[in-house]
């Protein structure tokens, strides 16, 4: 279980200090799929970096199964937003996926096996010898996902993973992520600014306010699984949830600063 308590992060100091995150508390249970949405500039990436130990929180705690996170934990793998800047262009796809496994498997054969399995899981078998820049954007992001999966994490953090691909590829990648989750049972924490995506994917949607960020509301998503791009999105309940989250985001984006969490909302509590 990943749990975040009263997380606060400010950049800089003195009069020039920027408060990115004011107060975040949330937990992600084992096997859960949690999506975090917020308006652009809501400190979502900052939060993820605190969760995976890349940034030190100014105050508050991040714990993983009870142990405080002080550096990148081996149970967490990350998929970053900009695939073109997260894959090493000097390595082939296989070497990119295998790079983080060097400290886990001594033998190259073991590594190769895991890499092959991961590439197969994202539908990229046969592309291991290509270089990332020889692939399309969607394929590159699948390589990044394979790299995360090969690492065999308990939790996969995804930072706006589909923000820079076209709409059709985006839908394909969303379904890929759902399938991977069903196959592996890995806990997923995905950050996005796309409300449809969040509602479509998640068990719970955590709505963040504009900067300085707080949690506005946690919305349980009671849509049936398995989900489908057409049938799920046609459900009245999908529209309801979507509208609810959108209202929250609109309000906070307009207000700018962090409002008090909306107490009057009832929709999220229904189950």
């Amino acid at each position: 279980m990943l749990s975040v308590t009263n997380l606060r992060k400010t950049y800089g100091s003195g009069g020039q200090a920027v408060e990115a995150i004011r107060d975040l508390t949330l937990t992600v249970d084992k096997g859960e799929f949690v999506c975090i949405v917020g308006p652009s500039g809501a400190g979502k990436t900052t939060m993820l970096k605190c969760l995976c130990g890349l940034l030190k929180p100014s105050s508050g705690t991040v714990t993983l199964d009870g142990a405080p996170v002080t550096g990148p934990p081996k149970e967490i793998a990350s998929v970053f937003q900009d695939y073109s800047r997260s894959l090493m262009p000097w390595f082939t796809v296989q070497r990119n996926v295998g790079l983080p496994l060097r400290n886990r498997y001594r033998s190259a054969a073991d590594r190769a096996e895991r890499v092959a399995t991961a590439l197969d899981a994202v539908g990229l078998s046969g592309f291991g010898d290509r270089y990332p820049w020889q692939l399309s954007g969607g394929m590159q992001q699948r390589v990044a996902i394979a790299r995360g999966l090969a690492y065999a994490p308990e939790i996969l953090l995804l930072d706006e993973p589909f923000a820079s691909v076209d709409a059709q590829t985006r839908a394909d990648l969303e379904d890929l992520i759902l399938r991977v989750r069903d196959d592996t049972g890995v806990t997923m924490l995905l950050v996005t600014h796309d409300i449809d995506e969040a509602v479509y994917l998640a068990d719970r949607v955590v709505v963040m306010s504009a900067r300085p960020s707080v949690v506005l509301e946690t919305v349980p998503v009671d849509l049936p699984r398995p989900r489908d791009q057409v049938t799920t999105k046609r459900l009245p309940r999908f529209a309801e949830l979507r509208a609810h989250v959108l209202t929250l985001i609109r309000r906070t984006a307009l207000d700018g600063a962090a409002p008090t969490p909306d107490q009057h909302s009832t929709i999220g509590a229904r189950r």
């Binding site: 081996k74 967490i76 090493m88 000097w90 983080p100 060097r102 400290n103």
Partner: peptide, 26 residues
């Protein structure tokens, strides 16, 4: 690119690995 260093750190590459596989090739 600092992004690449984030990747290297989050996947727990050792400083020597970061030098050999990320910094110097870049």
């Amino acid at each position: 690119d600092p992004h690449l260093e984030d990747v290297a750190r989050s996947y727990r590459l050792t400083p020597a690995q970061r030098l050999a596989f990320v910094l110097l090739p870049a």
